[in-house]
Amino acid sequence: MSHENTPDYYSVLQVSPHADGDTIERVFRLLAKRFHPDNGESGDSDRFSQVVEAFRVLSDPEKRAAYDAHYQEIQQVRWKVFDQESAQDDVAADRQLRGAILSVLYSARRNDVDRPGVGIVDLEQLLGTPEAHMKFHLWYLREHGWLQRLDNGTLAITADGVDRVMEMGGPDAPHLLGPGSPPSPEEPGSRGEASDPGPGDAPHPAPDQGHGGWGAS
């Protein structure tokens, strides 16, 4: 198979080429449930097949080693055909996810000001998004002072973060969460070590509808 026709499996799973086996399996399970054809809200048979194929290769040490041997060439081809329209779509989706993260943390702080922390596993469940996909956004929000990591390791919104949410129209603003908003952290099972969500249990934030703000300083 030519490099032009070889899929970027790391991009399909949205993980780093340096991701370990546990991370790859964790991300695969979340994406497989999101895109499974039986999922009435976010099922996508084509995406599901891509995710399964990517996991089949990257979860096998021998297949992954063979794939990695020419991954650099695959990357060069990928960036060669990269287009501005897809870049804009990615930026909009990133902005949407940052808004959804802050909205969840806002609700947690509003519902229990003394125990506002939300664990990373809870965020994964509520947003249907693996930790690996949120790391950049958590860093960005933390650098702006909109969220903080508490002593117990959970994440909580700051006063500046609350102000930011209100500036953007409040935690339920349609352009922050889009159709199919994530459940509020006070709902049963949203705190602590919840089990993996079933199909449709954790909707992924919808692409942004053109409202900006989360990428601004």
Rank of each mutant, 00 (worst) to 15 (best):
L31E: 06
Q96S: 15
E41H: 10
I101P: 09
W214D: 12
M134P: 05
G99K: 01
G128V: 03
G40N: 08
E187L: 13
A69T: 02
A194D: 09
Q75F: 02
R56Q: 03
G169R: 09
A92C: 06
D172I: 00
G99E: 06
S16D: 04
D8G: 10
M168S: 11
D90T: 06
L150C: 00
H3E: 00
L58R: 01
R149C: 08
L30R: 14
S45W: 03
R191V: 04
P185A: 07
S59N: 07
G128C: 05
W146L: 14
S190K: 15
L97K: 09
Q84A: 15
S16Y: 01
P179S: 10
V12G: 01
V113K: 13
F28L: 03
G21Y: 02
S86M: 14
I24C: 02
Q72M: 12
P174G: 00
M134F: 03
G119W: 15
T6C: 03
P185S: 09
Q14R: 07
P179E: 11
A32D: 07
F48M: 02
P199G: 14
K63H: 11
S195M: 13
P203I: 11
R64M: 05
H211M: 14
G119V: 08
R34N: 07
D68W: 03
R98H: 04
R29L: 08
R142Y: 03
V27E: 05
D196P: 13
V118K: 06
E41I: 14
H204Q: 14
L176S: 11
E4Q: 01
G180I: 15
A173R: 11
L13P: 00
K135W: 00
E62Y: 07
L58Y: 01
S217P: 13
A93C: 08
V57T: 05
S59Y: 00
V91L: 08
A19E: 00
D112P: 08
H133S: 04
Q125T: 13
D89G: 06
M134K: 01
S184N: 13
D151Y: 06
V57Q: 02
H204L: 12
M166D: 15
G99T: 02
E187W: 11
D208R: 12
E41G: 04
G40H: 05
M168Q: 15
D201G: 05
Y9M: 08
P116F: 05
S42H: 11
A65I: 01
L13F: 01
L105Y: 07
A206K: 07
P130I: 12
T129I: 10
G170Q: 03
G145F: 05
H137L: 05
E85I: 15
A93F: 07
D8R: 13
D160W: 02
Y67L: 05
D94H: 07
A100S: 08
G119E: 15
A93Y: 06
S45K: 01
A69F: 01
V113R: 14
R109I: 01
N152Y: 06
H3P: 00
R26G: 10
E193L: 13
H36E: 08
A92F: 10
V57N: 03
V118C: 02
R109N: 09
P183F: 12
P182S: 10
L13N: 01
V91E: 13
T154I: 03
L13T: 01
Q125H: 11
P17T: 03
D163N: 15
D208C: 12
K63A: 15
D90G: 04
